[in-house]
Design a binder for these strands. Sequence first.
RNA 1: GGGUGUUUAGCUCAGUUGGUUUAGAGCGCUACCUUGACAGGGUAGAAGUCGGGGGUUCGAAUCCCUCAACACCCACCA
Length: 876
Amino acid sequence: MEIPSKFSPQTIESKWYEYWQKNNYFKSVPDNREPYTIVIPPPNVTGVLHMGHMLNNSLQDIIIRRARMRGYNACWVPGTDHASIATEAKVVEKLKEEGIEKDDLTREAFLEYAWDWTNKYGGVILEQLKKLGCSCDWDRTKFTLDPDMYESVIKVFIDLYEKGQIYRGFKIVNWDPKAQTTLSDEEVIYKEKTGKLYYIAYQVVGSNEKVIIATTRPETLLGDTAVCINPNDDRFIHLKGKHVWVPLTKRKVPVIEDEYVTMDFGTGCLKVTPAHDLNDKALGEKHNLEIIDIFNSDATINEKGLDYEGMDRFEARKKIIKDLEAYGSVVKIESHIHKVGTSERTNEIIEPRLSYQWFLKTDNISKPAIEAVLNSGEIDMFPEKFKNTYRHWMENIRDWNISRQLWWGHRIPVYYYGDGNEDFVVAVSSQKALLKAKEKTNNQNLTLSDLKQDEDVLDTWFSSWLWPISVFDGIRNPKNSDVEYYYPTQDLVTGPDIIFFWVARMIMSGYEYRKEKPFSNIYFTGLVRDKKGQKMSKQLGNSPDALKLIDIYGADAVRVGLMLSSAAGNDLLFDENLCQQGKNFANKIWNAYRLIEGWKIDENINVSSSTKEALKWYKNKFEKTLVFVDENFEKYRISEALMSIYKLIWEDFCSWLLELIKPNYGQPINIETYNKIIVLFENNLRLLHPFMPFLTEELWHFIKNRKSNEALAISSWPSINEFDSNTLEEFEKAKEVIVGIRNFRKEKNISFKEKIDLFVSKSSSILPFEASIMKLGVVSTISYGGAPKDVFGRSFRVGTFELFIPSNSLEDSDTERRKINEELTYAKGFLASVEKKLLNKSFVSNAPEDIINIERKKMSDIKQKIILLEKSLSAL
RNA sequence: GGGUGUUUAGCUCAGUUGGUUUAGAGCGCUACCUUGACAGGGUAGAAGUCGGGGGUUCGAAUCCCUCAACACCCACCA
């Protein structure tokens, strides 16, 4: 035999991947078939494959491979994301290692360095996806900074600006002092921290009185421009219209009144720092307060901060408290638990900062996106619970801060020609900008050197929100044949953590730019956790090396391992044992084929009855399973689909069908049976292919030499045929009889080589699947009409059948009696519960007819069984 | 502070508009078997008062209320 007894994935995986690629099976161009499209959630260009990617991309591959087999024009578009903050941070760090500071480089030099880095490491992850077996159309690979993608992003910015949806605003934004950029609200993570609440005394001007103010951020008093009380608060009523001295400064600020102040928090008296707090900013606008910004961009104190200039904000806090204590101005310090905003990327504490930024209005574009998910049902989410999350966010959505003070990204197409708030134009290039500026200013003498392009780039998500459109060039050329054919896509497979960052925004951009949803179904995967339930992360070091897993178990096994326990939206507690299970499964199928392949074929041999029975049963079993698999795919219950295929192959095909059909050792098999088995085996491979592409393709080609248009990857998914459930039920009964015989052998220690005789009580019907029972029970004769008299043996019952097997060994009647009594107790208890139901008048009058009939059938069945049992008992 | 989920066998989870024998699967566990596909195998078995309490119903793991534990999301109370 040439086939090795163990399946070794390592030797075949690259072979088949190359074969698929060479034959362009994954390539898709528009044709007259229906399209089935998935766009990949683009991983960070400098990222490496981790467990989350493996889960996410295995799912996409399973879905797209099945679609391909079902005859759709399947198109899976791969690509990577430039991930501006993350990548820029990596590059800055790398430069630092080489002793270079970002500030010492020009923008151009820095970008050159970043591109070198990207070209060197970028796309590694895409190669790793190939190892996993991902059937992407690699000719369509996109990068969010590709020139055409760049143009699309800029075009959208200009368009939205011209529609009045994008504006420049002077607002409090989330500032990351480490990355030196603003962040969107979604990029801020609130972490619970124990801080301190400082009670500080402010001297009232022209009085001996002091007011006490509670604050968590005493250093910001340098920027205080008012003190606020609640007009309904009797305690402070006398302070109306007065001023107070800001401690340590020589400034006096007004006492203002606003109902915003909570009377029972802190002291009921609030210091107002419009430059450094969102609420204070609002108060400041309402009451026309001065704004004093006391921080530099790195969160050190600036020249407004008196002696504290140059100090870090936390250092300054300590010093200020010390100085205040020296003046006796600190009344008390309490420990205080509160949530502190931190940067998702750098972990740095966010500084609310007032600055000019670019914003996208969201109230209009969010409307159709809400409608599509929550009302019209155009977009489905799996699991559905995420619709709630989505609704909540969408209904409370705020304008999106899209500018970032970074270099790595799409530079904002805004050109300033002066210092005024309105002294800018928005244009696709500097030349166009010049024309616009000349027109706007009526100054024909302007030159390019008078224009200064905005230094900032756009939020990464401002490019990825266009992804399903821009990968098909649908922004630049909205009528091109690709986008018209592939858009909208079918499925999006992603994590719930980016539902706001990305999913919601793609839906918004889809309706804005295509007047259509970007995808029909969203499958949210869970987080991959370790066995203890901890999130897998680099920091914890609990994440297995994805590629190493593929090396050890094979890509197919890892995919199976991941799929076996990952219901949509549920976190997945990853256990390497699951990969082992996948590997075992691969080996099982491998050996099933080895068995079949080893049979000698004979054209003249007759087909046995057991073979006929077995083939008839398995055909029905397969059809039933196929229906179940298809249904589960429709509901995105991928793990359920896989489990049913797993059981079909392992139990039904290997343990029952092959055992029934297997010729005796050295005996040949009938050629027709052999051919039928091969077809059945091929159909199994079809079902399994999306999950285990490499193994199945390998076996597919082992079976016979296939031409390049006969590869499994592009073969067909089985079509559904009717099945007879009666046949399936009867086979289940036959199995029970076989199990009974096996039990008997085990208890009597009778070897499987020794044939037995089986007697069936004078039952009106004959046993179903008699030949199968004889073969797998190793039975020489089946006789009806009850057990012979004066013969020792053991009886057992299956449904309404009573069976008897004679045995030479002396019967232990006590054991027998005990067994029957146990069965009897169960049966009587069961009968009682059924009778109780049927004697209940309200049940009989209220329950539907078919339910009552089921109960009646249960009752008559169990009564018969009780009679059988009692008869057996008295016979002993 | 608000919201959404979860809680079923040792572990991970199904249980699909309440009714198909007094709850299922995979893994694990136990016993035995196994030199003719596979020990990465086979056969069988044990194992759960469906988180607690209350209610609706002829009937509840499934619907309602309540309590508890856990998880996640959202939020500008200094």
